[in-house]
Design a protein around this nucleic acid. Structure first.
Length: 300
DNA sequence: TTGCAGGGGTCAA
DNA sequence: TTGACCCCTGCA
């Protein structure tokens, strides 16, 4: 049996995948339920099956044993895709230690101790978070799945058919009445326009990813349906801008409730987060979002 | 059974 | 700064 090591993670090949050992700060539930992705479904055995980068994989984790199992993959794909996607090169122990200077963050981090910020595809995140505006999570997932069924490629796994996320060409060439079949309502016109802009090269997501954060945000906001919050989600979840602090209703509530103790304007919340969490604000946001939403903190 | 509020915001006035 | 907005669910 051959074993490999990447960043102190031991990798062992099994018949249909890989077993990773000595993985710190990794909990599948925390990662896939903390709001950064809409394409991971919980299975009966508490594992998660998801579609990303035109592949379907299944991930389960045992935090106590520091063990992660990835099914339907290969060593080659792990090295080429999943190691980066799962952010396994990052030391979350350091991040958590730096953010734990007060008891409030300590509790939030303890609650979502296995959160990692995925490195997702900017194009997929762009469309997904346009759909998220004034919407509910089950509906967002449903619309993304319908879009994928209509314009993506089928992928079979475990007797089920999944669909890859569509390309800009796929959605950009579709008519508005077809896109409306994804049930995203008034957001459909934004989806179409965004796809056309990416398809034509008017918006180059690769370029934007390389830009300084402020300029990248302004560039993203040129896309219809992308305001401050959606732009920040794109920056944090797909462009490695970890200093941004996307403020949605939950984050606004939890920041007010736990820290500011009063109603506060979104701009002031940004300033506060920048001052308090610095270049780790994005990580803080994820711990707080998960903590707030799971425990309904600040609601009412 | 029907009706209404409201949701991971954005846009236009 | 304020409403409207597709679609759907939960709850009177």
């Amino acid at each position: 049996m051959t074993e490999y090591t990447m960043n102190s993670i031991k990798i062992r090949e099994i018949s249909n995948g890989l077993v990773l050992e000595n993985v710190n700060d990794f909990n599948a539930k925390h990662i896939f339920d903390c709001g950064q992705s809409f394409r991971w479904n919980k299975e009966g055995d508490n594992s998660y099956t998801g579609v990303a980068f035109n592949k379907v994989i299944n991930i389960s984790s045992d935090s106590d044993d520091k063990k992660v199992t990835i099914l339907n993959t290969s060593l080659k794909d792990f090295e080429g895709i999943w190691f980066k996607y799962l952010d396994l090169n990052r030391n979350y122990r350091d991040i958590k230690r730096k953010l734990s200077s007060d008891s409030i963050m300590k509790n939030a981090i303890k609650y979502g101790s296995g959160i990692r910020i995925l490195n997702q595809d900017p194009w997929e995140i762009l469309i997904s978070f346009i759909i998220s505006a004034n919407n509910r999570i089950p509906m967002i997932s449903k619309s993304i799945n319908l879009l994928s069924e209509m314009y993506g490629q089928p992928i079979s796994y475990n007797g089920k058919t999944y669909y890859s996320f569509p390309t800009p060409e796929g959605i950009g060439s579709a008519g508005i009445s077809d896109i409306e079949k994804c049930r995203a309502g008034f957001r459909c016109k934004y989806i179409k326009k965004a796809a056309e802009m990416v398809k034509s090269g008017e918006i180059d997501l690769k370029d934007i990813k390389e830009m300084e954060t402020h300029r990248a945000r302004e560039e993203l906001k040129r896309i219809p349906g992308v305001g401050a919050k959606v732009a920040d989600c794109i920056l944090l979840f797909s462009m490695e801008k970890h200093e941004v602090y996307p403020v949605d209703v939950w984050v606004k509530r939890v920041t007010e409730h736990l820290f500011l103790k009063k109603e506060t304007k979104v701009n002031e919340i940004h300033d506060y987060a920048k001052g308090r969490f610095g270049n780790l604000a994005g990580f803080a946001q994820e711990y707080l979002f998960y903590y707030a939403r799971e425990l309904k903190i600040g609601k009412n």
